[in-house]
Write a protein that binds this DNA or RNA. Structure first.
Lengths: 234, 234
DNA sequence: CCTATACTTTGAACAGTGTTCAAATTATAG
DNA sequence: CTATAATTTGAACACTGTTCAAAGTATAGG
């Protein structure tokens, strides 16, 4: 395997570049993501990096995909860890893992859900699949709860606005997701509610008001499940 | 007034600089915020700007304060416009104005709630007051609803976690806010829920899933008020 | 009105950024 | 061992924020 060896070495350097990038990001925030700084870190000239990534944007895209996959991994791991417990407990564990990962990997989270790098726009066809991977964990658990009857839609969340239901049905049909529009709708609602807390926490807008954000988040998760119509206690 | 004339002219140039900055931001995103670009825009040398703002960060801070105040203005205006209607209708109008302003002023919103400028950290003592101004509009309306009896805390949102209640009480005592811990708690909960939608909309993460974000937002606002315990119909 | 003082603008320089490209070097394959 | 492919180099270009002394301009007092 002559070409295999070259390819393998190439992949190794690409990984080394990404690791240096993550190290710099962790140390100096998403602002520390400088091509020249990465080159310095691994004793390369700036121009040398262009043989591994066509541009800084391409490198950022790779980092984003990795981050989305790491987040999805964390959610799946939380689900597996709570596998023995009730469906509600599993969902709770997964939703807590969402914030946990964000708090533990702030720069990665900012990279994927903030607007960190000036001028950069993510190519959707590359970044969307790993996003769906993570989101599916949440929606899948909701779907199970709905089918088992542990979760039953109650007012006011029992009505899905027609335009939205139509779009969700289209999405399910087009991409072949094995879930109901109801589960998707609940997933999106819950996602946005929790995402707001994390986003405000990330940029330090909510600690001054609420003090302990972790407690607020947990309360919000529990309340969310209750208002969505969870029948069993958690 | 000799010094008044100088001061006035100085203030005029400062305003001109900010307007050029906003123009560039609107055109090229928060990334377009370049000191040299601003200087070019108003036919000045980069170094000249330093007589009006000590640094780019200082200019950004000024823009952020302006943005928070503009947001607060929009919320107050929405409240006044709906002044004749019920308290619930006023709150609904204000919450819709929150997203409206974000959608109409995306770069300003990203400037204050995103992580736009690498390396910049806002000086809290300057930026917090205008934040409170806007937030007070929401919390004030909630307080009125609570006192009039139109809003009554119901499960699960009737319980405030003890640690959070303690922190809120401290805040109220320290800064002398004329509101209850309950109103503040409800305000924060609502704020985070809606903020999540806007944040995800801003960075284009939710349209692909839900289609019409405006409908989702409106539904979320109404559902929020209902689950918080609003007794009257909207 | 004219000078002395304060305010403002200038221009050059420094250190940093992403990116391009031909040239030189190194490693691989026949 | 040589021909070929993969890499690394180094210089250059255009851009960024920031500093500072020098030059220019407007204002105030006599």
């Amino acid at each position: 395997m002559p070409k295999g060896r070259v390819e393998q070495r190439r992949e190794g350097v690409r990984e080394e570049i990404k690791q240096a990038a993550r190290r710099l990001m962790a140390a100096h925030g998403t602002a520390g993501l400088s091509l020249r700084a990465i080159a310095r870190e691994i004793n390369m000239l700036p121009s040398g990096l262009y043989h591994y990534y066509g541009s800084l944007d391409e490198l950022i895209t790779a980092l984003i995909v990795d981050a989305f996959n790491a987040l999805a991994d964390a959610l799946e791991a939380a689900r597996e860890t709570a596998a023995g417990q009730s469906g509600a407990a599993m969902l709770l564990a997964v939703l807590e893992a969402y914030r946990r990962w964000a708090v533990d990997h702030p720069t990665d989270f900012q990279l994927i859900y903030g607007n960190p790098i000036p001028g950069y726009v993510a190519p959707r066809e590359i970044t969307v699949p790993p996003v769906i991977r993570g989101f599916s964990v949440i929606v899948g658990l909701i779907e199970n709860l709905l089918q088992s009857g542990a979760l039953e839609a109650v007012p006011p969340y029992d009505v899905i606005p027609p335009e939205i239901e139509a779009h969700l049905q289209m999405l399910i049909a087009r991409d072949g997701y094995p879930v109901s529009a109801r589960a998707l709708f609940m997933g999106v609602l819950g996602w946005t509610q929790l995402h707001g807390i994390i986003m405000l926490e990330m940029f330090n807008h909510i600690q001054p008001v609420i003090g302990d954000v972790e407690t607020l988040y947990r309360a919000q998760v529990v309340n969310l499940l209750k208002t969505l119509g969870l029948k069993t206690a958690i």
